[in-house]
């Protein structure tokens, strides 16, 4: 009887018309890659909640929120460099360096605000230097930030003598461990930063000029957009957010580690790209980047809970990036009729 009712429903066209409309839209416009990633993340959450009794526990969900906050903040910054058709490979090292610096300054007895300001100042200075090397000296962003990846990591190791820096004030650690309305303060921090950056990207001239520059630098220059200003903005923001994430990571772990945030730059780039950003510039969003970061954190978390070999996690993440970028390319080719 129930089967009959379903088929009757189909005959009346209720379900069919929705599916028809959807498939027609997909044929015309394709599925945005972000939709695919959202569906995949949701599917992963459903599967993991059945596969592991711990996945949907309060403790684990709060843990995921804290993890995605740190990687999300870094990825938001990297997104801005990708939007202008650049790249920032130095963010993981900047996060580690800022983390060691803030820990060292706190151990020296500086007030929290001053230690944080010092580490943030360093992050901003690194961003300004990266932009200077890229825009004024004309060195490709890939090279400048690849050199930074090595140099800033070296700086973190030098500043800490290769050791972890512990003995931090409790008040400093309390921030990252705190909650507001049952949600980790780290997550609130990421949400606030994300909302501001989303607003800048979608509503302001600055956001539009970044996209225009990444889309066609020559046309942006011809209409009088200040390319230098946009370059400095993107790289300074990227390094500053990496420094902030490094500081928050130290607050969360109560220890400054020079080897922290290793390979975070690749996760950040992957999150942005999986979230719909184009490595050729001009395309990408904060929401997409957040979903991308959440997907990778979910994969890592789920794999840990299920006892999957961490090496397989890396393989899975790599395959996923390749698939998502492939789907995006296929759709673009279909749209442009190539």
């Amino acid at each position: 009887m129930s089967v009959l009712q379903t088929s009757e429903l189909n005959k009346q066209g209720v379900n069919v018309s929705v599916i028809d409309k959807l498939s027609q839209r997909i044929k015309q416009k394709g599925v945005p890659v972000e939709t695919f990633v959202v569906l995949l993340t949701a599917l992963l959450w459903v599967v993991l909640s059945f596969a592991s009794p711990y996945f949907l526990t309060e403790g684990n969900v709060l843990n995921i929120m804290r993890q995605v906050s740190i990687s999300g903040i870094i990825a938001f910054g990297v997104l801005f460099t990708i939007l202008i058709a650049g790249i920032d490979l130095s963010v993981g090292s900047v996060a580690a360096l800022a983390g060691v610096v803030v820990a060292k300054l706190l151990v020296l007895g500086l007030p929290i605000w001053l230690a944080v300001a010092g580490a943030m100042g360093l992050g901003i200075a690194i961003g300004l230097f990266n932009a200077f090397a890229i825009f004024r000296l004309g060195i490709p962003a890939f090279i400048v930030t690849l050199a930074g990846l090595q140099a800033y990591r070296g700086g973190a190791l030098l500043a800490s003598d290769g050791m972890s820096v512990s003995g931090l004030p409790k008040a400093f650690s309390a921030f990252a461990r705190g909650e507001f309305l049952g949600i980790p303060t780290l997550f609130w921090t990421m949400v606030i930063i994300g909302l501001i950056l989303h607003f800048v990207l979608t509503k302001t001239r600055t956001g539009r000029y970044l996209i225009a520059m990444g889309s066609n630098q020559e046309s942006a220059r011809r209409v009088g957009i200040n390319i230098s200003k946009m370059t400095f903005l993107a790289y300074t923001l990227s390094a500053a957010l990496a420094a902030l994430a490094g500081i928050l990571l130290v607050s969360r772990l109560s220890v400054g580690t020079p080897t922290a945030a290793m390979a975070y730059e690749l996760n950040a780039i992957a999150a942005a790209v999986v979230g719909g950003a184009s490595l050729f510039g001009g395309r990408g969003s904060i929401t997409g980047t957040f979903i991308g970061a959440l997907l990778f954190v979910t994969i890592a978390n789920g794999a840990n809970l299920l006892g999957v070999d961490p090496f397989w996690q890396m393989v899975a993440a790599g395959v996923l990036i390749a698939i998502v970028v492939y789907i995006d390319n296929v759709q673009k080719r279909r749209k442009s009729g190539v």
Binding site: S215, G224, I225, S278
Partner: peptide, 15 residues
């Protein structure tokens, strides 16, 4: 000299 990723209007008003 159009920015491919921007809409028609965004290109006309760019800058």
């Amino acid at each position: 000299a159009l920015a491919d990723e921007l809409s028609v209007g965004a290109n006309i008003f760019l800058g």
